[in-house]
Lab assay of single mutants.
Amino acid sequence: MGFKLLSKLLVYLTASIMAIASPLAFSVDSSGEYPTVSEIPVGEVRLYQIADGVWSHIATQSFDGAVYPSNGLIVRDGDELLLIDTAWGAKNTAALLAEIEKQIGLPVTRAVSTHFHDDRVGGVDVLRAAGVATYASPSTRRLAEVEGNEIPTHSLEGLSSSGDAVRFGPVELFYPGAAHSTDNLIVYVPSASVLYGGCAIYELSRTSAGNVADADLAEWPTSIERIQQHYPEAQFVIPGHGLPGGLDLLKHTTNVVKAHTNRSVVE
Rank of each mutant, 00 (worst) to 15 (best):
30 S>W: 08
261 T>C: 07
131 G>F: 00
148 G>V: 05
212 V>A: 07
123 G>I: 04
84 I>C: 00
253 T>P: 03
220 W>R: 03
234 A>C: 02
175 Y>Q: 01
57 H>Q: 05
57 H>E: 02
59 A>P: 04
115 H>V: 00
228 Q>S: 15
183 D>W: 01
233 E>M: 11
154 H>L: 12
7 S>P: 09
262 N>C: 05
93 T>W: 00
194 V>S: 01
140 T>R: 04
187 V>C: 01
20 I>D: 14
43 G>R: 06
107 P>S: 12
152 P>S: 05
19 A>V: 15
209 A>M: 06
262 N>R: 11
179 A>F: 04
80 E>N: 08
105 G>Q: 11
191 S>P: 07
127 L>C: 01
3 F>T: 10
192 A>R: 11
225 E>L: 12
3 F>K: 15
97 L>G: 00
56 S>W: 15
3 F>E: 07
40 I>T: 14
55 W>S: 02
81 L>A: 06
170 P>Y: 01
10 L>M: 11
239 P>A: 03
246 G>W: 04
211 N>L: 05
187 V>M: 06
125 D>Y: 10
237 V>Q: 01
64 D>R: 12
175 Y>W: 04
99 E>Q: 13
57 H>V: 03
52 D>L: 10
38 S>A: 11
252 H>W: 03
213 A>W: 07
61 Q>Y: 07
228 Q>V: 13
186 I>A: 09
206 R>K: 15
183 D>F: 01
148 G>S: 09
183 D>A: 01
158 G>L: 06
184 N>Q: 02
35 P>Y: 10
168 F>S: 03
229 Q>A: 14
133 A>C: 07
150 E>Q: 07
246 G>S: 12
208 S>K: 10
228 Q>W: 11
38 S>F: 11
179 A>G: 11
49 Q>H: 12
92 N>D: 02
115 H>D: 00
145 E>N: 12
48 Y>I: 15
204 L>E: 15
45 V>T: 06
185 L>C: 04
249 L>Q: 02
84 I>Q: 00
211 N>P: 00
225 E>H: 09
142 R>N: 13
138 P>L: 08
85 D>P: 00
163 G>P: 03
241 H>R: 02
29 D>Q: 10
127 L>M: 01
33 E>Q: 10
34 Y>S: 08
146 V>E: 13
139 S>W: 11
150 E>L: 04
155 S>K: 12
73 L>G: 04
172 E>T: 04
110 R>V: 11
43 G>V: 05
213 A>H: 13
219 E>Q: 10
166 V>Q: 11
148 G>P: 04
151 I>N: 06
169 G>M: 04
260 H>C: 10
219 E>H: 08
264 S>E: 11
187 V>A: 12
146 V>G: 13
201 I>M: 06
266 V>L: 14
113 S>T: 05
17 I>E: 08
85 D>L: 00
203 E>A: 06
166 V>P: 04
4 K>S: 09
30 S>C: 08
53 G>L: 07
84 I>E: 00
85 D>A: 00
58 I>G: 04
163 G>S: 07
151 I>S: 07
107 P>I: 09
87 A>I: 01
201 I>E: 02
214 D>V: 05
166 V>K: 10
221 P>W: 05
250 L>Y: 05
64 D>P: 06
66 A>P: 06
206 R>G: 14
131 G>D: 08
239 P>D: 00
118 D>H: 09
19 A>R: 14
193 S>T: 10
170 P>N: 15
150 E>R: 01
184 N>W: 01
206 R>H: 15
27 S>H: 12
153 T>N: 09
182 T>S: 11
163 G>E: 08
107 P>Q: 12
225 E>P: 03
218 A>S: 13
223 S>H: 01
72 G>L: 02
252 H>S: 04
257 V>L: 13
193 S>D: 12
49 Q>K: 12
97 L>F: 02
169 G>V: 05
183 D>V: 02
258 K>Q: 13
18 M>T: 12
199 C>Y: 06
257 V>P: 02
59 A>W: 03
239 P>V: 01
133 A>R: 13
246 G>H: 09
40 I>K: 06
67 V>W: 11
229 Q>P: 05
16 S>R: 11
62 S>G: 13
126 V>R: 06
154 H>K: 09
87 A>D: 00
39 E>Q: 10
263 R>A: 14
173 L>R: 03
88 W>E: 00
76 R>Y: 06
77 D>N: 08
204 L>C: 06
44 E>M: 11
257 V>F: 06
119 D>M: 00
252 H>T: 04
3 F>R: 07
19 A>P: 14
11 V>P: 15
71 N>W: 04
225 E>Y: 07
250 L>V: 04
22 S>F: 08
263 R>Q: 15
128 R>D: 11
258 K>S: 13
24 L>C: 07
218 A>C: 07
156 L>C: 03
26 F>V: 14
246 G>A: 09
247 L>S: 15
48 Y>V: 15
204 L>W: 09
124 V>F: 06
1 M>H: 06
235 Q>V: 10
94 A>F: 13
150 E>Y: 05
161 S>K: 13
35 P>A: 10
162 S>M: 10
30 S>P: 11
107 P>E: 12
249 L>E: 02
67 V>A: 15
20 I>N: 14
101 E>L: 08
217 L>S: 03
26 F>L: 15
68 Y>H: 08
258 K>W: 09
136 A>I: 04
135 Y>L: 01
66 A>S: 12
37 V>G: 15
54 V>W: 03
160 S>D: 13
61 Q>T: 07
251 K>P: 14
217 L>G: 03
112 V>R: 05
112 V>N: 02
241 H>N: 03
220 W>Q: 02
163 G>A: 07
10 L>D: 15
80 E>H: 09
5 L>E: 14
164 D>F: 06
75 V>D: 04
160 S>H: 11
187 V>K: 01
171 V>Q: 01
93 T>L: 00
162 S>R: 14
171 V>A: 05
21 A>K: 15
169 G>P: 07
250 L>A: 04
251 K>S: 13
238 I>K: 01
133 A>G: 10
231 Y>Q: 00
126 V>T: 09
262 N>H: 11
264 S>R: 12
243 L>G: 11
88 W>S: 00
243 L>R: 15
17 I>Y: 13
82 L>W: 04
151 I>W: 05
248 D>M: 09
147 E>P: 06
147 E>Y: 15
122 G>C: 07
198 G>T: 07
207 T>F: 09
248 D>P: 08
19 A>G: 11
17 I>P: 06
169 G>F: 07
267 E>G: 07
112 V>Q: 04
146 V>S: 14
113 S>C: 05
118 D>Q: 11
9 L>W: 15
14 T>R: 07
156 L>Q: 04
264 S>N: 15
262 N>P: 10
188 Y>I: 01
114 T>P: 01
60 T>L: 15
83 L>V: 09
55 W>V: 03
147 E>S: 14
59 A>R: 05
225 E>W: 12
133 A>V: 13
157 E>H: 11
198 G>H: 02
86 T>K: 02
134 T>H: 03
109 T>I: 13
48 Y>S: 14
199 C>R: 02
147 E>I: 14
231 Y>C: 06
